[in-house]
Amino acid sequence: MSPRRSYDQYCSAARALDAVGDRWTLLIVRELLGGPRRYTDLHADLPGVSTDVLASRLKDMERDGLSTRRRLPPPGAAYVYELTARGRELLPVLHALGEWGAPALGELRPTDAVRAHWFALPLLRGLEAVGAGEGLVEVRLEEGLFHVWLGGAEEGPLYGDGPAPREPDARLAPDARTSGALNRGTSTLLEELREGRVAVTGEGPLAKALREV
């Protein structure tokens, strides 16, 4: 393992950047907020990262107490990476970076990779701002399905790829224009819900609350 690089500045921001300032580190955190991931899964959802750089960043994150590696019991018998409590504390940092970076998104470029679950964190911010309560929400985009846990997920995953693992408390289906506007920060989920541009289905309290905002 390479020695830890440091700015050697007695400043909390500099200390934070010692741990997460390298390219790809915060994006690995973004992926691990969705729960334990295998190395191959991380590599598939971080297009552009080399295998050497990904392995190096994961080792650095483990050394710095941001993540751990554990072996799944049989029949899985694979290693997975997951965030520690210290690593999960980076969620507000990613929220702030996402809000700050939203105006720079612009339109999707031909060279831009995209994954449905990359919309999970902006959507969580929007759902929390609406204040509709807690529950499991399944979201359908043109890019695919994902699900998010709203509230109460202090230790478990915040989101996941694919259909919800159980009957969701609400299902959302924003159209392409709406999901783009929410990603870029040019509109809010509250505005889109009130304008009827996000289809909400489900009979639970969360779905009803989202329809009545």
Rank of each mutant, 00 (worst) to 15 (best):
residue 59 K to Y: 01
residue 101 G to W: 11
residue 177 R to H: 13
residue 119 F to L: 15
residue 201 T to H: 03
residue 175 D to G: 15
residue 54 L to A: 02
residue 40 T to R: 14
residue 176 A to P: 07
residue 2 S to W: 06
residue 40 T to L: 11
residue 53 V to I: 07
residue 212 E to I: 11
residue 96 A to M: 03
residue 180 G to K: 07
residue 182 L to C: 13
residue 64 D to Q: 11
residue 109 R to M: 06
residue 7 Y to D: 02
residue 180 G to E: 13
residue 209 A to E: 07
residue 125 R to P: 00
residue 21 G to S: 05
residue 42 L to M: 05
residue 116 A to F: 08
residue 60 D to L: 15
residue 82 E to Y: 00
residue 127 L to P: 00
residue 1 M to F: 09
residue 50 S to H: 07
residue 32 L to E: 05
residue 137 V to S: 05
residue 32 L to M: 03
residue 208 K to Q: 13
residue 84 T to F: 00
residue 110 P to V: 05
residue 187 S to H: 14
residue 33 L to N: 01
residue 27 L to E: 15
residue 130 V to L: 09
residue 195 E to F: 12
residue 158 L to K: 06
residue 52 D to A: 13
residue 184 R to F: 01
residue 186 T to A: 03
residue 99 E to C: 06
residue 213 V to R: 15
residue 72 L to C: 09
residue 200 V to P: 01
residue 89 E to S: 12
residue 70 R to S: 13
residue 148 V to H: 01
residue 62 E to Q: 14
residue 36 P to L: 11
residue 94 L to I: 11
residue 192 E to W: 08
residue 53 V to S: 11
residue 194 R to N: 14
residue 140 R to I: 07
residue 171 R to C: 09
residue 29 V to M: 06
residue 176 A to W: 05
residue 93 V to A: 11
residue 147 H to Q: 07
